[in-house]
Amino acid sequence: MNMPRLKALALLLVLLLVLLLQACSTVKLAYNQAPTLLYWRLDSYLDFNDEQAPQVRESLQRLQLRHRREQLPRYAELLQRVRPLLAEPITAEQACAIVEQGRSLLGELAEPALDTLAWLAGDLSAEQLRHLERKQSTANLEWKQKWVDIPAEQLASLRYEQVLSRSEMLYGSLDEAQKNAIRAGLASAVFDPQRSYAERLRRQQDLLQQLRRIKTEQLAPEPARALLRAWLQRVMISPDPAYQRYQQAQIREGCNTFARLHSATTPAQRARAQQTLKSYEDDFRQLAAAA
């Protein structure tokens, strides 16, 4: 769950929009397919054998059922609290307060996933760990080519288009003044792709070390779970104080950008944003009721 996930929060609701799947018309379809999609994603990294595959599928189904019951209602409640705020201008401080609530919900996803799949760590072969390392290397090369090995102007354009797309998911089409609000927010961006890439590598090597230790020492389930829990904590909060400051600066920057853009929106756009969140909220409640 590289939820990667805690990458730069360029907008207040980017966290929610990413966390809570895709555009509202596809939320339920995507959510219902999530165990299958996640299985294939994991399999591409770990190459499950014939005995592991059905156990992983069953584990992911149980995880989703638990998520329906325990997490989706809380997502709906958060959106219900956020909606009224979007009727008026919002401050960066208000935006960051909501981001922190979203981060808290993300953190709560870790423990159920750990409980569900911790058994797998002790069952991985040496070849599967080598396969994981090769897959990570390939993914890292792609990430580096997209974000690091490009001119500064191309990076700025890529980030602008990304934020614009997510903004228009919420508000609908933006006019030029509103697009300039996004450009202004990104003009002094603290985003450093090389620093983000270095942290990505650190997390991956950390994971490989923990998995190899579990295998080499043939750890029992609870000590293995403790190692993985500590790794997840280091994913959520980097052990590098400089990176912690960088991550917090990205979050503050995202809050400022969102506040600037939201203040530039029209009453009709704010009403659309509220309705977008209401659609998400309704979908989450319906999905939770189906548990």
Rank of each mutant, 00 (worst) to 15 (best):
L158V: 01
L86I: 03
Q128R: 10
R41K: 10
R200N: 01
L114H: 06
L19F: 11
G122Y: 04
V163G: 03
E222Q: 15
L106T: 01
L158S: 10
D123R: 14
P89C: 07
E142K: 13
A76V: 03
L17G: 08
A118S: 09
G107P: 00
A230S: 08
K28A: 15
L17E: 08
L158T: 05
L261C: 07
S157V: 09
A198G: 08
A95V: 07
F48E: 02
W143F: 14
R159Y: 05
Q248P: 00
C255Y: 02
E199K: 10
F258M: 05
P223E: 15
L29F: 12
S167H: 04
Q218W: 01
Q248Y: 14
Q71K: 07
Q244G: 06
R5A: 00
Q247I: 09
Y197C: 00
Q136E: 07
I251C: 10
R83H: 04
S263I: 00
L72Q: 02
K146W: 04
D149E: 13
L15S: 05
L170I: 13
A126W: 01
M3L: 13
E253S: 03
Q194P: 01
E70L: 15
P241K: 11
V56F: 09
C255R: 02
S263W: 07
T116L: 09
D47M: 06
L114E: 12
Q204M: 02
L12T: 00
L60G: 08
A184E: 13
E281M: 13
L38P: 00
L207M: 02
E281Q: 14
Q33P: 00
W143K: 04
P112R: 15
A291D: 12
I98L: 15
Y39I: 13
L141H: 14
W40K: 11
L117F: 10
P89Q: 03
I90Q: 12
P151W: 05
E133G: 00
S59H: 12
A271V: 00
A271L: 03
R5K: 09
L42S: 07
K28E: 14
R69P: 00
N180V: 03
E153W: 01
I214H: 02
A30C: 08
H131V: 01
Q286T: 10
L11S: 04
L85Q: 11
E142V: 14
R272Y: 05
A259I: 04
V235R: 09
E58M: 12
E217Q: 14
R66Y: 08
W231Q: 09
G185F: 10
L132D: 04
R130Q: 13
C96S: 06
R69W: 04
P221I: 04
K144C: 12
Q52G: 00
A288L: 13
W147N: 12
D192N: 08
S25M: 07
W147M: 08
Q94S: 09
M169Q: 14
L232G: 06
L228H: 01
R270M: 09
V235P: 00
A113Q: 09
T266K: 03
I237D: 09
G172A: 15
Q128I: 02
P223C: 12
Q233M: 14
L287F: 09
A152L: 08
R212Q: 15
R62Q: 15
V27A: 12
L21H: 06
L46Y: 10
A121K: 05
F258D: 08
